[in-house]
Computed example of a mutant assay.
Amino acid sequence: MKIDLKKQIATYAAPRGRFEIVTVPPLRYLAIDGAGDPNTAQAYADALATLYPVAYALKFLSKRELDRDYVVMPLEALWWSDDMAAFTAARDKTRWRWTAMILVPDWIDDARVEVAAQAVRTKGGAPAIDALRVEALDEGLCVQTLHVGPYDAEGPVLEAMHDDFIPEHGLRMTGRHHEIYLGDPRRTAPEKLRTILRQPVERVG
């Protein structure tokens, strides 16, 4: 039976139109770092062209060697900038830095990730394979919501999260802005894209 981790990890669901405070468990990801506008930066395209082949190689390895089949998890990304207004008011994508990621199931160890990555490297066509790594992320306490609509319409939602909800609930931001892309922009109209917007926080005082 194929495992869908989106249904097993509660924080892969979020309410639309309101913010919620959640605790995200420690998770591991295939990850590649980069910088610049994701719409135009070749590095971002290269990252995605590498992450997906390795993620599917891992899926087939898990099914073949461990008899555990699963749904490949959605693309995710951490985003940051020296000035957070670049995400909210200004939306200056040239100043963005990012880590593109896909979740690794917890039963797959780093050695098997390396086997899958090596298989993809041998086949060629994964331009950022040498930049690929496994990153453990322990975000813990977070605020998140489901945004439905174009990515460029996120600004007001993030402003409300950062400037209103978080301080009003005795919290402050800690880690990097995190997005989980539940919709495929190649096949989904912009107004129907579904994205979880997440911000790690800590309690003040």
Results as ranks from 00 to 15, higher is better:
R172N: 03
A10T: 13
A41C: 10
L141Y: 06
S62T: 02
G34A: 12
R64Q: 11
L103K: 12
P156E: 01
Q118A: 12
L141A: 05
T88D: 07
P38N: 02
P105H: 12
T188C: 13
Y44N: 15
T174G: 08
P190F: 02
I21M: 11
Q118M: 04
D4G: 11
A131L: 14
V54T: 11
V72C: 05
R172D: 02
A14I: 11
T50V: 12
L171I: 05
L141R: 11
E135Y: 03
T40L: 04
A116N: 10
R28H: 08
D163A: 08
A131R: 15
R186P: 09
V120G: 09
R121S: 08
Y44E: 14
M73S: 13
D110M: 03
L182C: 10
G175M: 05
D37Y: 06
A116V: 03
V157H: 04
V157A: 04
R64W: 05
D130S: 11
A10F: 10
K59S: 04
V120R: 06
L27Y: 04
A85M: 09
T11G: 10
M161P: 08
I9N: 12
T94N: 01
D83P: 00
L48F: 09
A45H: 14
E179T: 01
A86S: 14
R121M: 04
D109A: 13
D33F: 08
M73Y: 09
P185C: 05
T195L: 10
A189D: 14
G170D: 07
R203A: 13
V143K: 11
L158Q: 08
H162T: 00
V143F: 09
V24P: 04
H177V: 00
Q199W: 01
A160R: 14
P190R: 04
W98C: 04
Y44R: 15
L78T: 01
P53N: 03
D106K: 15
A31T: 07
R198Y: 01
R28D: 06
R18H: 13
N39W: 06
A153P: 03
R187T: 09
L78H: 11
V104A: 08
V148N: 08
R16I: 04
L171W: 07
R68G: 01
L66K: 14
P167E: 01
L158N: 04
D110R: 15
